[in-house]
């Protein structure tokens, strides 16, 4: 259905630096900016019909993490915020075993999810965001 090369060709359009690791997983490197002052490494994995994203922020340790993870999930449809071994991650996956258009993969499964992941980090510690 899709390949890492295909996904990488889409992210190349955005100019996102990336590399493919020894396992064949794609790493996207999002640089810190004024909105979120931490680098974010987004790992893209493809396993059978599942396209998955796991995003790791660098050196970001919000307090009250368990509460804020749930708060983030109340606010957003995606990605899913999780606390793993005391650290924050943003995750999301698409299971696509049937036909979908290339536009769906590009727009919904790549472009929008990457934007949502970044925005989820930007908003994570803010108290003024409304719930979904």
């Amino acid at each position: 259905m899709f390949t890492i090369d295909q996904i990488r060709s889409y992210t190349d359009r955005f100019g996102v630096p990336s590399y493919v690791d020894d396992d064949g997983d794609l790493h996207l490197n999002f640089a810190a900016d004024n909105d979120f002052p931490h680098n974010v490494d987004v790992v893209v994995l493809i396993d059978n019909d599942r396209l998955s994203y796991i995003a790791f922020p660098s050196d970001y340790h919000p307090d009250n993490l368990e509460y804020k993870v749930n708060r983030a999930n109340m606010r957003r449809n995606f990605p899913t915020a999780v606390m793993s071994k005391g650290e924050l991650r943003m995750e999301y996956s698409f299971y696509i075993s049937e036909d979908v258009s290339e536009e769906y993969i590009y727009d919904t499964c790549v472009r929008r999810i990457l934007g949502s992941i970044w925005n989820a980090f930007v908003e994570f510690d803010r108290d003024d965001i409304e719930e979904e």
């Binding site: 299971y95 075993s97 049937e98 979908v100 769906y104 919904t108």
Partner: peptide, 22 residues
């Protein structure tokens, strides 16, 4: 909770199999 944004072209089978049954 779960949601799917379906404003791009997808097959009926995708909606039925992946967005409803699963």
């Amino acid at each position: 909770e779960c949601s799917f944004l379906l404003d791009e072209e997808v097959s009926k089978e995708y909606i039925v199999e992946n967005c409803i049954k699963m």
